[in-house]
Structure formats: C-alpha cells, structure tokens
Design a protein around this nucleic acid. Structure first.
Lengths: 208, 208
DNA sequence: GTGTCAAGTTGACATTGTCAACATACTCGT
DNA sequence: ACGAGTATGTTGACAATGTCAACTTGACAC
C-alpha cells in the first residue's frame, strides 16, 4: 500500500533507534535480527535494504549493525567528553572519563558487545564505524594530553598512551560484562570499579 | 546405516577439532555453524546433540561453542605457561607470557573472538568454560607472584593485579584484531607489539 | 491525463538450529 | 546361540531468518 505517514523521522534513524531499543531489552536474544528491527520500526521486513543496500554490495544486516555500533561510539564519545568537561582538573577529568566509559559499558552491555563483536570484525569501513571509533580514541587522547600538560601523566606520544589507556578500559569492561562486577571489583558498585580502573590507569601512565 | 568406523577418537573431540579447523580457515564465515561442524566431523547434522544435549536443557550449539572456547582457554594457558617456563628470570617470564598471549590472539583470531564473544556471554557455566578461564587467570597470577617475590612487581593482592594485567593484555589483543597490527604497534611485528604491551604492563605494576 | 520515477511491500527461496521418530549395531542374561 | 534392551546414531519435518526479484502504490513533470 505504498507510503504511510512516517512523520518527521526518516527511515535510517528509525532503524537505528529501533535497534537500540531492542538492545536495551534484557530478555531479548543477544542477536540483532533484521526482521525484528523492521517490525519495531513499523515497516516491512525488507525496508532496511532500501537504506543500507544489498548484502552483495556490502549492505544488509551487517551495515545496519555497523550503523548502530557507530552510533554507540558516538554516544560513548559524548558521555566521556561530558564527564571530562565537568571535572575541575585534568587528573580528575581522566578519572571521570574512565568511570564514564565503564558506566557506559555496564549500562549498555549488549550495545557494547556489538561495538566490539565478531560481526563487525574487519568492517570498520561500513557506515562510518571506523571514523566514530577513531573519534572516540581522540577523545581519550585529548584527556591524556591535558594530563600531560598538567604533569600528571608522563610525556610521550599521546596516541600511543591513549591506545594503552583505552586497552585497559576495554579490558576492564569486558571482564565486568563477562563475569559480573563482583568478581572484578572486589565488591560494591560500578563507580567503585571505575575508580579502581582509573587508579590502575594512572599508575601505568603517571610520571616517575 | 548405524555405526561406521569412527576409529580412535570419540565424537566429542571430533567435533571440537572440526570446529577448530573451521575457525582456522580464513575464508569461512565468522559464525560457527552446527551443520558445517558435523559435516567436517563426518557425521550427520544432528549428531552434536548426542554429545552436548538439547538446547532446552542448556545444550545445542551454544554448548558446542562453549566447549570449543574452553579448549581455547586451555590452549592459551598452555602456551603462556610454556613461554613463562622458558624464561630465565621472573620479569622475563612475565614478558614472555604477555608476548605469548598476544601471539595466540593474533594466530587464532576467530577462536579468540569466540572465547570472548557475545554468544557465550553469561554462559560460563557451560562445558567447563568458567573453569578453564579461571585456570588461565591463575596462570597469569602465578607469573605475577613470581615477579612480586623477585621484587619487580609491587606487592598487593595478586588476584587483583592479575586481573589488571589480563585486562591490559585483552585490550591490546582486541585492538590488534580489530584494527590490525600497524595501527596498534607503531609498526613491525607481533613480537614487537608484545614487547610494547609488556612494557606498559610492567610500568603499571612495577614498584615505585 | 499520462508517463516516469521513487518508496515500500509481498512472494519466494536457501540456510540454519532444533527435535521427534525411526534405524542399526553392540551387549548381556539365559 | 539367541533375543531383549540399550547405545549410537540418522532422516524427516518445521519454524525462523536473511536475502532478493518482482510487484504495487503514490507523487510529480509535462
């Protein structure tokens, strides 16, 4: 029956929002399914192909997943930046950033897994995924640089140090998601875990 | 036609070996498929259910994947231990362990992703997966303890420090797998990357 | 009005995980 | 030796899913 009122939002954002909503439902399967997303977006099952192209052209479900993951990195960058900006000095900024990172992973476990999952391995070229991911790294890098300027982080190539910091954070996040908070931080809340990670992070980066 | 000669190896190891073989083929899909595994093991498609049980009882494909992942952790523990034992002093042992970890991830990318993938999230109870994973952590812990005894790693709760070390290694491995060596280590080989990671690791753990 | 294009839907198909029903070989009591 | 029972599979069938070609419908230019 052709067009219906799809109102203000265009299809693309509808799909991404629908996917996010599904990822937020805890009972759902760990898998992101094309048909479920389409249903949630109130369109027919194959509508995503109109937006993301056919699979044989690099589109299809994988492209949709990549778009969702890219949006996830965008969100993550945003919360990190926001947390860092709220801090009074660079060191606290880096701590806040670390906490925000882990809180994001803890608060959006399925999205976080998608962002680093096997489905998107080697597909950093899709839907701006690589760019958004790089942007996130740059956010970390900026915080590191501020700390270097303040003398609380050792000098050296900031991109490399940012990579290290990110690796530590990702490691903690993975552990947390796989085993639960309890076994990772020796007890208590995500905030506590964030502090532990930040401690570890600054221990590794701090000047002698 | 009932039985045929399945020779010395029993079904379970056949399935696991078949899965490993498939994971090693680079052209294959990132997904581990039940039917392909069965075909490779030269049995009918549903044979895995005999070994791993039905899905509604916690078995099925997920259990098979868990068994493969558990075997992966076992292999990883082995190579780490072997690398550590070959070293002359504790610090070199820890370095060798780090290098071995990253080499394993680089050499078995699809297996490594399975070991930490979303399919097995929250299924640490299956097929000894949790135990093998814990055993791997203990391997790291032992190396840390030796370093503490030698005074090259700061004192403190070894399990926590081992967790930190593991987090760093996993972060590096993930980065490496997702983006390729080049962008992670500023050039050259996996061995080089291992050294960088070990450096970072010891910087973070070393005594003041 | 009529032709043209864009946007979206339906039909159809191959693949996959899953399980119940069926078949075949081994084993053991007698 | 032999038949009942059990282990060890295999086929048949089904529902879901990703995918794409063919079809349908609405808007707009001329």
């Amino acid at each position: 029956m052709g067009r219906e009122k799809k109102e203000a939002s265009d299809l693309r954002t509808r799909f991404i929002d629908a996917a996010h909503a599904i990822l937020r439902e805890e009972d759902a399967s760990y898998k992101l399914e094309l048909r479920k997303i389409a249903q949630r977006a109130e369109v027919s099952r194959t509508a995503p192909y109109l937006v993301f192209g056919k699979e044989r052209e690099g589109g299809g479900l994988v492209a949709l997943q990549a778009a969702v993951a890219a949006d996830g990195f965008r969100q993550l960058s945003a919360v990190m930046r926001k947390a860092g900006d709220g801090a009074t000095d660079p060191e606290m900024g880096l701590r806040a950033l670390a906490t925000a990172y882990l809180a994001f992973a803890a608060g959006n476990p399925r999205l976080y897994r998608l962002m680093f999952g096997a489905e998107l391995a080697g597909r950093l070229d899709l839907e701006g995924l690589g760019e958004e991911r790089l942007e996130m790294q740059r956010t970390v890098e900026a915080a590191i640089k501020r700390c270097q300027a303040a003398g609380v982080v050792k000098p050296g190539a900031a991109p490399i140090l940012a990579l290290s910091a990110w690796a530590t954070l990702h490691g903690y996040a993975t552990l947390m998601l796989d085993e639960g908070f309890e076994r990772v931080s020796a007890g208590s809340e995500p905030t506590e875990l964030g502090k532990t990670a930040a401690e570890q992070l600054l221990d590794g980066l701090g000047p002698p």
